[in-house]
Design a protein around this nucleic acid. Structure first.
Length: 208
DNA sequence: CCATTAAGATACT
DNA sequence: AGTATCTTAATGG
């Protein structure tokens, strides 16, 4: 994993820390739709993303899900930090959006590594970043209608997939935005009529 | 072909 | 915006 780690993180971490990470971290590759973390599971590792993307979902008691935000290269999960500090259980669900490579670090190292300035900065910045994304997610929910939410969602998906064509069904989108399939279909049809997208079976092509 | 599943349509809340 | 129901279209064996 050494090369991958160095390529992605050498500008953030000092050499001693990098060496420690190589020592105790494990490189893992996860495939699309693989579940990395379930609500209620104990957090034992902290992920450092090398490439790909992980989606973070909130799940309610009835099992319905809501997309909060994506983690990408250079990101880590703030939830993990919160959880492992307090020895508690995950409040969120994490699923690989695309094939993703990440390094898993044992949580007990987190505290030990606070002796490194670059680590403290990284943890702090990650918290900031996640907090900002969380605020953004709240704004989206509170102030945007479904049409805007869907548009934003499609845009994000396209960035992460690095493609203008998304292989996804209306039902799946409805699931992630926590709405119904009919509503998604209606809104997509509207976007198609506006010339923004082109619809196919289980596929959306973004034209803008 | 047929079975399954995605998506369109319509009507109602 | 969301639910229920029916119809139609695409897909894969």
């Amino acid at each position: 994993m050494h090369q991958e780690l160095l390529e992605s993180y050498h500008q953030f971490f000092e050499p001693e820390l990098l060496a420690d990470i190589v020592d105790s971290g494990v490189l893992k590759t996860v495939n699309e739709d693989e579940v990395l973390m379930e609500v209620g599971s104990y957090v034992k590792h902290m992920p450092l993303l090398i490439d790909g993307a992980i989606k973070i979902l909130r799940v309610d008691d009835h099992g319905s899900e809501l997309l909060l935000y994506f983690l990408e290269k250079g990101d880590t999960c703030a939830m993990t930090m919160t959880c492992c500090m307090g020895q508690s259980v995950s409040e969120i669900k994490a699923v690989a959006e695309v094939k993703t490579r990440l390094i898993l670090l044992p949580v007990h190292k987190m505290e030990e590594w606070l002796k490194y300035k670059s680590w403290r900065d990284f943890v702090f910045d990650s918290y900031n970043g996640r907090l900002y994304e969380m605020l953004d997610a709240i704004d989206t929910l509170a102030f945007m209608n479904m049409n805007e939410r869907l548009t934003k969602y499609l845009f994000n998906k396209s960035v992460i997939a690095k493609s203008k064509t998304l292989n996804i069904s209306h039902q799946e989108m409805a699931y992630e935005l926590n709405t119904s399939r009919v509503v998604i279909s209606r809104l997509l049809k509207q976007l198609e009529n506006e010339g923004q997208i082109k619809l196919h079976r289980s596929k959306v092509q973004i034209l803008t």
